[in-house]
Design a protein around this nucleic acid. Structure first.
Length: 458
RNA sequence: GGCGACAUCGCCAAGUGGUAAGGCAAAGGUCUGCAAAAUCUUUAUCCCCGGUUCGAAUCCGGGUGUCGCCUCCA
């Protein structure tokens, strides 16, 4: 199993700290807004990482934090004129709802920043004692000049940072790259008591504290979007190293950006889509397919056409699953022979190569094709088994059964029986009219040797 | 200005030295009353120039283009 490690810029053999156990921490949402389609990428990708590690026999502990304290939340609370805690609660709930809609398995822990304030204060105290932090007028900063490897993760040098600083230097800081550990509270802001007065911790401290607390010392994988590399993750590493000279995590994984029609998503360009808006129009599996059809580290371009293409691709899996009558064969015994095992091995070696999900998906298509050719239902079981690892085919009952109430279902059956009568009489005009009318209502008929099937199309 | 990534068929995309996976779309055949589904067949020498090599999409150099990061954005 190889993983690309941002820290070394290389694919490395993955060796967990503890054999058979994978501990991972992925930076979660700041709950000041509904999350957007770009945020869905790390959620879906690391969901797959967890599922895959479990599939190959590991116990996985995944932590995804909730940042419920931050400038953006404070701004939102001022805009909407409601307390910060209410903002946090509202969007935390929305986060979980949207994750569920995207069929993302919840993490094992969802620590909230506000629940770890004391631990953060303790860490800052420790950093101050070790002379990695200094206080100026109630604000506390981390001193990057004292941090030996600062910039290693992001490949930046302190000199370059200084030269290229595009924001006017904060005069209180000793070095422009020094970052805030503790922020003095302004009027009306949420605040906690600390040795430096009333205030709140900075963002970079929470992840260090919560990851250590929940995952113990050095853990295996720290993940997030590539934009977090600098400064967030760099700063986490610096704090961890300064406090106990231990690595925070062994492997740093970062997913690439999502662009909209080639441009960065932003409110000013008016190309900002929330996940919940996208979900209103498209199936979660199509969205998942879209993300997983490209390697996680590459930038990915979002536009509606691509989601439509993805929907079509996913639909083809379901065509096969329907024709295989999956719901009826799913509990039947089956055995994998060498051919099945070969497909499985291809899937595993693709995933072992730094989570090459695009290749893994192509294996699913190979399996589908193999089933259609042989009608060997073991292929269907394999398709489901491997598809599940990528988070597909998790809700077969609903997808494959036609969810009309009994009366409507009977009416469809009735129309089909009329149509069959017309067909027998070679009254093609009426037979086609029934099929077309039903099609317009979203019900598709399909004639097979065993009779007429019908499906509700979304 | 500094650092970095990427450029493969109409679209999406895998492929890191051995002769271009897969998906979507399109065209044609089989099947079907016609459809749908399925199936078979067809469609690229990998941005440009130069180099290394028996051999390069894959390595090196030089262009061109796109994108990202450079203080709280996944």
């Amino acid at each position: 199993m190889k993983i690309y490690n941002t820290l070394t810029n290389k694919k490395e053999e993955f060796v967990p700290v503890e054999n058979g156990k994978v501990k991972m921490y992925v930076c979660g949402p700041t709950v000041y807004n509904y999350f957007h389609i770009g945020n869905a990428r790390p959620l879906i990708f690391f969901d797959v990482v967890k599922k895959y590690f479990e599939y190959i026999g590991n116990e996985v502990i995944l932590v995804r934090n909730i940042t419920d304290l931050d400038d953006k939340l404070i701004n939102r609370s001022l805009e909407e004129n409601i307390p910060v805690s209410v903002v946090a609660e509202k969007y935390t709930k929305a986060f979980f709802d949207d994750c569920k809609a995207l069929d993302i398995t919840p993490a094992d822990h969802h620590p909230k920043a506000t629940e770890y304030i004391n631990d953060m204060i303790n860490l800052i105290k420790e950093l101050e004692e070790k002379e990695f932090a200094y206080e100026v007028n109630g604000d506390v900063y981390f001193s990057v000049s004292n941090s030996k490897d600062y910039g290693k993760l992001s490949g930046k040098k302190l000199e370059d940072l200084q030269a290229g600083a595009r924001v006017e230097a904060n005069k209180q800081k000793k070095h422009p790259a020094d970052f805030t550990l503790w922020k003095k509270a302004k009027q009306g802001e949420p605040k906690w008591t600390s040795p430096w007065g009333e205030g709140r911790p900075g963002w970079h401290t929470e992840c260090v504290v919560m990851s250590r607390k929940l995952l113990g010392g050095t853990f295996d994988i720290h993940g997030g979007g590539i934009d977090l590399v600098f400064p967030h993750h760099e700063n986490e590493i610096a704090q961890a190293k300064a406090s106990n000279n231990q690595k925070l995590a062994n492997y740093w994984m970062h997913n690439g950006y999502l662009n909209i029609e080639g441009e960065k998503m932003s409110k000013s360009l008016d190309n900002f889509f929330t996940a919940r808006d996208i979900l209103k129009k498209y199936d979660p599996e199509a969205i998942r397919f879209f993300f997983l059809s490209k390697h996680y580290r590459s930038p990915i371009d979002f536009n509606e056409n691509i989601i439509i293409e993805s929907s079509q691709a996913v639909k083809n899996f379901y065509n096969t699953l329907k024709s295989a009558d999956y719901l009826n064969i799913k509990d039947k015994e089956f055995e994998y022979s060498e051919v099945h095992q070969q497909h499985k091995n291809s899937f595993i070696s693709a995933m072992n190569d730094d989570f090459n999900t695009a290749k893994a998906i192509s294996v699913l298509f190979d399996i589908t094709k193999a089933y259609n050719k042989t009608k060997d239902s073991a292929f269907i079981h394999l398709l489901i088994e491997l598809g599940n690892v990528l988070g597909f085919f998790t809700n077969m009952e609903e997808k494959l059964s036609n969810s009309l109430n009994d009366v409507s279902g009977e009416l469809v059956e009735l129309l089909i029986s009329y149509r069959n009568r017309f067909k027998k009489e070679k009254n093609w005009e009426m037979a086609d009219k029934i099929r077309n009318d039903l099609k317009e209502m979203g019900i598709t008929l399909k004639d097979t040797p065993e009779g007429t099937d019908w499906n509700i199309e979304k």
